[in-house]
Design a protein around this nucleic acid. Structure first.
Lengths: 324, 324
DNA sequence: ATAGATGCAAACCCTTTGCACATTA
DNA sequence: TAATGTGCAAAGGGTTTGCATCTAT
């Protein structure tokens, strides 16, 4: 955290006076990385200004929570902890009861399921808390964990890229295969074109991945933060498997549409969630690519359907295989 | 809760003295349904015995938590609440910030994903807390929720049956279709047999469902408690879709195995989680049925493979369709 | 001058604990 | 009698609040 000033400015409430003390509290808070208790923060602030009251810290924390600069988290310790939301999206927690270390993660899949459950109950969610208590690997095995705290931001960028790359890879495999299977000429062209685009994206992403890794020698070994099953083993991989069971061009388009839609949603969701950062950029660019593919596929699918209206009948008449 | 005595007896710690006060606290606690704060419990107990100390209640609550009669839950209110675990398995919570009502649910899918995340981090989980805060339907729309508290047990039995029925239905559809598609004679026989069994299970389950519904006129309208995507739209439904894309007998067996394995796991997991109850029984019976099917399918699959060893080649030579 | 921020200490709330007394095996 | 449970009151901790004071507009 280099510059908290500008961030603070744009969050200052309209009616409020400016105040040196509050600014100090906010500034010290934003410079921290972990999950601080009110007391931790008082300690830290006392180092820079002896004359500060506990009450001010509590009041400022409440103010920050209201301003959405901070989030109040409850780990069941009998007191609250606070984490700032600057460049730090909502996430879930793994909590080691033995060393009290916290591990953060985000699972798109879990979030989607939570949305499904709340939708079924017609419940309007404002916040989801998922905390997993247990023992971390370091405590169980005695091995030391990777030292040094790294901004979530870098890990997020890493995971964003990993997921993007995995998606591109399986997308590439899918479109290559679809191109080789499809007998319809125009369909084949479309799949080829998409495969070429995926190939190009892929090399771009891999270059970027190397750049991100260069920023922290241990980055590659750090535990994953972002979980998304759709990336490697879901979506396109499932799509590719479906292909190998023999489908025609229209079915291939539909599978492609399903896959692109799924990954578009994913990348958009998480791209929007982060403040301006490497990972955000990657995700939003990527979401855009996927959206373009999606539109192309839909357009082509429609064109194809117009050319041979009864999809079901034609599919039955001509099931295709790779070597058909 | 009719009889807490026997349950209490078998949980009494070996070294401990018997004590009227503690028995009273435990008894009152077990008679409640909701999530009580220590204070709520003190109030309730004061009605039956004026001469009881707050400290005793706290101490007994701690004792119950240790004895796993009660679970201490933290809803971030600054105090703990307690729920008894008697006929009441671990679950997740939806919490309405407006009316403070709690809705409980269990999602097999979320639990599986949590396990995947923790496995990736090599984290040994002891407890997962998922709390979703927001506004419930009644508070948003002004409509009154369904009145009357019902034991989770009955809702669990209802959901157990619903899931079992949905699974049987799609299983039946799958096996019927598989039987009509399969050209291999023995394979066809196996699928027919499985379809017949599913049909029989189905009618048994539907009868039971009616019986359960009869126990509470509003039971059918109560919000769902148990979520499992594999039941209706997952597993067999996906399997059936795969079938319609043209597969041979072996592939059909493999799909069947995948489906049976998934639902067997699900039913076993939740069957074991509940204390002796209607729902538990349904689930365990059902898990057993699925296991038998699973074994049959595996046996037949092996037999079939022995008869025509090169699966891939044969699949390629003879892709089948319903009317092939 | 006035609204808002701050410091201090007290109050609050939930929970735990020390200790004398009561109860049970 | 020895071990354990109970009541009371006090202490503990985290957090909030009332009020006088201070500080920016």
């Amino acid at each position: 955290m280099e510059q908290t000033g500008p961030y603070l400015e744009c969050h200052r409430p309209v009616g409020g006076n400016r105040s040196t003390k509050r600014d100090l509290v906010v500034d010290v808070f934003l410079r921290q990385e972990g999950h601080l208790s009110a007391d931790d923060l008082v300690e830290l602030i006392k180092k820079e200004d002896q004359r500060i009251s506990r009450a001010t810290v509590y009041r400022t924390l409440q103010w920050m929570v209201d301003a959405e600069i901070a989030r109040k988290v409850d780990f069941g310790e009998g007191r609250f902890r606070f984490e700032h939301s600057y460049r730090h999206p909502r996430h879930f927690h793994l909590i080691c009861k033995s060393c009290n270390q916290l591990f953060e993660f985000l699972s798109s899949d879990i979030e989607v399921l939570i949305e499904e459950v709340t939708a079924a109950q017609r419940f309007a969610t404002s916040q989801s808390v998922l905390q997993i208590y247990g023992t971390c690997e370091a405590c169980r095995t005695g091995c030391q964990p990777i030292a040094g705290t790294v901004t979530t931001e870098l890990v997020f960028a890493r995971d964003a890229l990993r997921i993007a790359i995995a998606t591109e890879r399986s997308g590439l495999a899918f479109y290559s295969r679809a191109a080789s299977i499809t007998r319809d000429k125009r369909g084949r062209q479309v799949f080829r074109r998409l495969a070429d685009e995926e190939r190009e994206h892929l090399s771009r992403l891999e270059k970027r991945y190397k750049e991100v890794l260069a920023q922290d020698p241990q980055l590659e070994d750090r535990p994953p933060f972002l979980f998304f099953k759709g990336a490697a083993d879901g979506l396109f991989a499932v799509g590719a498997e479906e292909l190998s069971q023999g489908v025609d061009a229209k079915q291939a388009f539909m599978i492609g549409i399903k896959c692109e839609r799924g990954s578009h949603r994913f990348f958009k969701r998480y791209g929007e969630r982060f403040e301006d950062s490497e990972g955000k950029q990657i995700f939003l660019e990527f979401a855009e690519d996927e959206r373009e593919h999606l539109e192309l596929l839909i357009r082509e699918y429609r064109a194809l359907t117009r050319r041979s209206p009864s999809k079901r009948a034609s599919a039955r008449r001509s099931p295709r295989r790779a070597n058909a």
